[in-house]
Simulated assay, not measured.
Amino acid sequence: MTMTWAGFWALIGTLDGEAGEAGCLRLAEELSELPVHDIEGFAERLAEALYRLDQEKFGTLPVADLTLRDGAPFPQSADSFLYARCAVVAAGRSVWESVFFDVDRFAPYTASTCDGESLLYVPDRAYELATGKEWERSTRHSCETFSNRDGWSHLGA
């Protein structure tokens, strides 16, 4: 993997802080111009960034703009937590780094209007654009919720 963290964050910076469909397509197109090993490296960095955010202190935050009928906090689902983590990554390096020191910085990204799902598909789109083939890939780290066992006290290491 030759994609450095600096290179990864520079590419993420092209999103201007949001993982909207148009921005993610633009990022995939830019990434597709790089060698395939850089596309793979981007996928590895993205998976690791999401994996590091897969922690109980973030995943148990309620959805920022929803409540249950009785007024109780609305919990994040496994999918909505994954998409919130994507939104944090799309917001850029400074936001991503800051949430580890202040969990409240993560909270706005749980809002139902804040969806980073499109970021997940950037490496696949870039690979397909670059090679004309569908990418059947796996990364060293899983981005799925609860995959970072160290981040969830009830799961144990």
Rank of each mutant, 00 (worst) to 15 (best):
E117A: 13
E29K: 14
A49W: 00
A126H: 03
D150E: 15
L155G: 13
G92L: 03
V89T: 04
C86K: 01
R26L: 09
F101M: 10
A107W: 14
F146Q: 09
R137Q: 10
G13Q: 04
D124L: 12
S98I: 01
K133M: 12
S112F: 11
E134N: 11
G132H: 06
T14Q: 15
C24H: 05
E128Y: 09
P73A: 00
V122K: 02
P123N: 00
S142Q: 10
A6K: 14
H154Q: 13
L34S: 09
V122Q: 01
E128C: 10
V63N: 07
E48H: 14
G23E: 01
D150R: 14
A49C: 04
T4Q: 08
D150F: 14
T131V: 05
E134D: 12
D124N: 11
A64K: 10
Y109H: 09
E18A: 15
E33A: 15
Y127R: 06
A90K: 07
L68K: 15
E21Y: 12
L119S: 01
A49P: 00
A91T: 02
A111I: 08
S153I: 09
R52E: 07
G41V: 00
L155Q: 12
D16Q: 15
H141S: 08
G71H: 08
L50K: 04
A126D: 00
A157R: 15
K57S: 11
V89L: 03
C114L: 10
P75M: 04
D104E: 15
T60L: 12
D79N: 13
A130M: 05
S112T: 10
W152G: 06
C86F: 03
G23V: 03
G59P: 05
T60N: 10
G132V: 02
K57W: 07
F106D: 00
H37C: 11
L34Q: 14
N148M: 02
L46M: 06
L34E: 08
V89Y: 01
F106P: 01
L129A: 09
A49E: 01
E33R: 15
I12C: 03
E48L: 12
S118R: 15
G17F: 02
G17K: 09
A47C: 07
D124P: 06
A19P: 03
C143A: 13
V88L: 05
L11H: 06
T4W: 01
L50N: 00
F8R: 02
A6L: 10
R149I: 05
G132C: 04
A130Q: 04
A47I: 00
K133H: 14
D70W: 09
T67D: 13
E56K: 13
S153M: 10
W5I: 06
T4G: 07
F100L: 05
L82C: 08
A6R: 14
K133C: 09
R137H: 13
E18N: 12
A19S: 08
L34D: 02
A87T: 04
L66A: 10
S77F: 02
T110C: 03
F74H: 12
R69W: 09
E128L: 11
C143Q: 11
G116V: 02
M1L: 13
S98M: 05
S98W: 03
A64D: 07
E40G: 11
L66Y: 08
D38V: 03
L68P: 05
G71L: 05
S80H: 09
S138M: 10
C114I: 12
T14I: 07
E144P: 06
V103A: 15
S147Q: 06
C114Q: 14
